[in-house]
Write a protein that binds this DNA or RNA. Structure first.
Lengths: 141, 141
DNA sequence: TTGCGTGCAAAGGTTTTGCATGGCA
DNA sequence: TGCCATGCAAAACCTTTGCACGCAA
């Protein structure tokens, strides 16, 4: 279902950056700064347009950081959009892929009992991970 | 833990509006327009500041509409922040409160097995409800 | 040559901030 | 009187759009 497209250097760079660490979500700004730091000048417009395209093709999950406002993206190595949930720690930014039975069951339950189809954008849940909780506890005495 | 505050007419109006229908999420714009329609002039600044306060106090869930960008809010009648999930239909805007055992189990599983504490902002999941799915199917022939 | 990709500049929209004033307790 | 609440205007941000040019196939 992928529309026709050309291989360009900029897109390759963006994609590499997105794929490089599937345990982080990325913002348009992150990409801009990353490319800038690597001497690749790029316009924000190009970034947004390419991200949009990837989202439409289902290769990227689009979501928002906890507060709202800024959109963030997560590369889906298995582009079966909507088959597993993710947990993202708001402090260290790490993303855990929930491929356990419980998550599976929950999604099925929502779909069957509540007759509700989850949107891809809701496949990232936010919170705080174990490591950050510990650190927080320590720093609070 | 509620900080000192004064009862003012504007805040009362905002709160009434938020409480009036716990099956919808509301944006700052909604509030602005609602009050304007009821001859209550208010500044957007005031709305944002009050919403922030309510979120900090845990009486409101802050989230983003599907795309991101605009924040939306949901009044929590039981301010035990983090005890049940909600499903929000992106088309009709209706919010279903998931107070079933499965949701409960899932949250517990995430907390215990993955050692991950969900953030209040993630207690709203987005998707499409039954009614809207049907309508969509019909309109597509 | 065709049609996608890109950049620039400008617009659009939401949210935040600084500062002065108004109002509750 | 002491804070908190409010409004205005401006700023800060993120994202989108229109248009012209560049470039892969």
């Amino acid at each position: 279902m992928r529309s026709k497209h050309y291989a360009t250097k900029l897109r390759q760079l963006i994609l590499e950056y997105l794929m490089q660490d599937a345990s982080r979500t990325v913002t348009a700004k992150d990409i801009y700064e990353h490319l800038a730091a690597h001497d690749a000048s790029i316009s924000r417009t190009t970034i947004y347009r390419y991200l949009d395209k990837l989202v439409r093709e289902g290769r990227l999950l689009k979501n928002s950081t906890d507060g709202g406002k800024t959109a963030c993206y997560l590369y889906e190595h298995e582009p079966d959009c909507g088959h597993h949930l993710h947990l993202r720690c708001g402090q260290c930014g790490k993303v855990t892929h929930l491929d356990c039975q419980e998550a599976e069951n929950f999604i099925q339950h929502v779909l069957q009992e509540h007759d509700f189809t989850l949107h891809c954008g809701s496949f990232i849940l936010y919170g705080v991970c174990h490591a950050c909780k510990m650190q927080q506890a320590l720093s609070q005495g």
